[in-house]
Design a binder for these strands. Sequence first.
DNA 1: TAAGCTTCGTAAACCGCTTTACCTGCCAGG
DNA 2: CCTGGCAGGTAAAGCGGTTTACGAAGCTTA
Lengths: 336, 336
Amino acid sequence: MATLSDVAAVAGVSPTTVSRYLNNNIALPASTRERIDAAIAQLDYRPNLLAKRLSTGRAEAIGLVTPDIGNPFFAQLAAVVESEAERHGYAVYMTSTHGDRAREIEAIRRMRDRHVDGLILMSNRPDDGSLARLLADDDKVVLMDEDVPGIGLSRVFVENEVGAYLATQHLIAAGHRHIAVIGGPPGLLSVRERLAGYERAMTEAGLAVHEGDVLLQDYSRSFGRAATESILAQKRTPSAIFASSDYLAVGVLQALQNAGLSVPQDMSLVGFDDMPFAEMVNPPLTTIRQPVAEMGRMAVEQLMALLNGIAAAPLTRLPVDLVVRRSVAQFQPRSI
Amino acid sequence: MATLSDVAAVAGVSPTTVSRYLNNNIALPASTRERIDAAIAQLDYRPNLLAKRLSTGRAEAIGLVTPDIGNPFFAQLAAVVESEAERHGYAVYMTSTHGDRAREIEAIRRMRDRHVDGLILMSNRPDDGSLARLLADDDKVVLMDEDVPGIGLSRVFVENEVGAYLATQHLIAAGHRHIAVIGGPPGLLSVRERLAGYERAMTEAGLAVHEGDVLLQDYSRSFGRAATESILAQKRTPSAIFASSDYLAVGVLQALQNAGLSVPQDMSLVGFDDMPFAEMVNPPLTTIRQPVAEMGRMAVEQLMALLNGIAAAPLTRLPVDLVVRRSVAQFQPRSI
DNA sequence: TAAGCTTCGTAAACCGCTTTACCTGCCAGG
DNA sequence: CCTGGCAGGTAAAGCGGTTTACGAAGCTTA
């Protein structure tokens, strides 16, 4: 590999000159420029980014910490983060934490060691304080999707409360009066907010939230199944379920199918996220769409602002909307 | 941030000593070791990886070039590549090419600029030769999933031919005698091989492949739909379809549904890949499972071998298997 | 007692680039 | 004729490590 000095030697100038020319830090006469350009072409010179970074202290790379890059939601987010970062000339280091606090901390350390300029962090566990402590004197970090309470970082979230409100209202508008809700880990921002949206819709409609109608544990398919089974075991079962993630909703679908019930005839269902598979399941899932592309774009934008010394917005809320498919039906009072 | 010299100063030794100690290149008496350890702990020293890499020339990072990290298949692969690489102490740089040749080339260049030690490359376009040329004098690259013909790199593929054979045979065993096949871009290794497996099964069973029964274009949902429409427009329609990717299969499902046909009653269907959504669609898709985890593991293993100067296997074939779900039914001759 | 090993280290060059001075002509203006 | 400014550069000190080569004590051993 040719180095800057090789280029300089061929062009008959000093390495300094070549470096400054390449970084637009010097005005050179056309003849010199041409000699340098020719030397670069001739040697097929490509700057050694490692050396450049070491010397400037700027890595021109950001880190993306996700719970699991194998999950379609995070994968989509990662894809747009990557392409947005690339537009700004930044590379992206990705890491999956597998939802484990220790790995999360390790990942953040590693990111720092790899010398990234900033971090986009997606967590999906309620923080016990260790994350907050680790990030305490860190700026240059943008939190996406879920919160880490107690630190003054820039955040990019969606309108969880509104989404849940919309979902619940949609069910109410279809005549449902007894609606259960299934959610992720208590303590998580998105869970709290989605629950709040559900409760607001119920309250505004003058509907009661019965005991046993709120089931929180985690955003997994298997909990979707388990929660549904527990709902079906009640004496008075609801006529509709709001599953606050599409993974949960798929679990609900499976449990209902196992129980011989069909959606939406026997039970209406609304999900949350609009995962790629939401329109492929049977029936296609009515759900709340999160603007994935917009989230990724925003997170990168905020981080770039931080990196350029511009104050980033402390909190960005992205709008969600209801995607009506075929998992909700008009409520039919049980015949006789 | 504390540097090596800071540690050396605090410990009362030279930077050389600390460096060699940290890299197990020197035997030191316990007292000295303790002083260095104490200094490291006291200063919370973490080596600057950038400097280390510049000086050693080893990046301890690999590049992963995928067509699209947002696609669940590649995302899953990426997830296991990442965790496997991490086990070996390597970081992973990921890039998506969006199936564009120019971006692919750019990605490979960038990877090199970022100074990765090796590359795992997944392409999904037939190469026009430019990729082969670019990689010609490159070792330290392993090709996964699809081929780039004409270069002597290590490759990790699945048993495409066997998989397609299994899928077709499964349909034949259910009594189907007229089976169409839908596939990706002609020229792609996986497409050729899957087609070959289909043909072998048909030939062995003494079945004819009718004109218009082989439709190749790309591995997309929309082509799955289009191909199905074209199949349904024929005078004699098949009773079963082998869609050589699950994306295609979902498209087939949608087109059949639009046409008022139900699977498997009116048409049997087998997919390929066993994407996460395959068991969520309606009906759950009978398909050929690719061993995603195994592929990722293998690719990393081969690359690590290369990086350690051990010759890697020129070609690894991973086995696939049939996952029977509910999209295939016994053939029913049309009544009257 | 001198030669020869160990043991425990160190000096200094180097990786490839950036950046902060600073330098040398040459020309215009006073 | 002197001064100042500008065009067109360059030397050298980093960035934070690694690595090669060398060396001073202190102990054996012949």
